[in-house]
Amino acid sequence: MRELWSIFSKGILLENPIFVLALSLCPALAVTSSVMTSLTMGLTVLFVITANNVSISIVKNFVNPKVRLPVYIVSIATIVTVSQLVLQAYFPLLYKALGIYLALVVVFAIILARAEVFASKNNVVRSFCDGLGMGAGFAIAMVIIGGIREIFGSGTFLGINIMPASYDAPLILILPAGAFILIGYLIGGVKIIVQRIEKAKA
């Protein structure tokens, strides 16, 4: 149990996909201009990565290593298509807001990386925990970035005005340039926290 917890929790901070591994920075720049789109993207990736980890760890013994990458891609593409259709049916507005980036989940580095690094070498339960942790870490990072960008870039949170009317939002936070700068500082901040934790452990 303890081991499963540590597999799960490392994805949230110590090996956070965006802040520490720096994988999948493209969605972190492209769809984080509001909290709602960040959260949707985060939850979608959480679902895809967990389901994919499970299916890869189930089939890992029947797949010739030479063809493992096509197998990963087919598995990911299937799961992404399912979540895309679900979003399109029940949340058409969010589906429109995410646009092409939803289909691009297929090629997110973090999903392929977890399949290759973890799921193809571990059993189903451990792979499930790893996917859940990595997906949660990704979703949390997306919401943090999206929250800061929405609060300071447009003065709203989940579409509700929270800044005083006189607040004159700098556009740069809504544009990719601001996201780059912000992610840079967040990566730096997380690095400081991780170093403190590791120092306390040692």
Partner: peptide, 8 residues
């Protein structure tokens, strides 16, 4: 440059 994109 940052001000230029922030408050054009």
């Amino acid at each position: 440059a940052a001000l230029m994109v922030s408050w054009p």
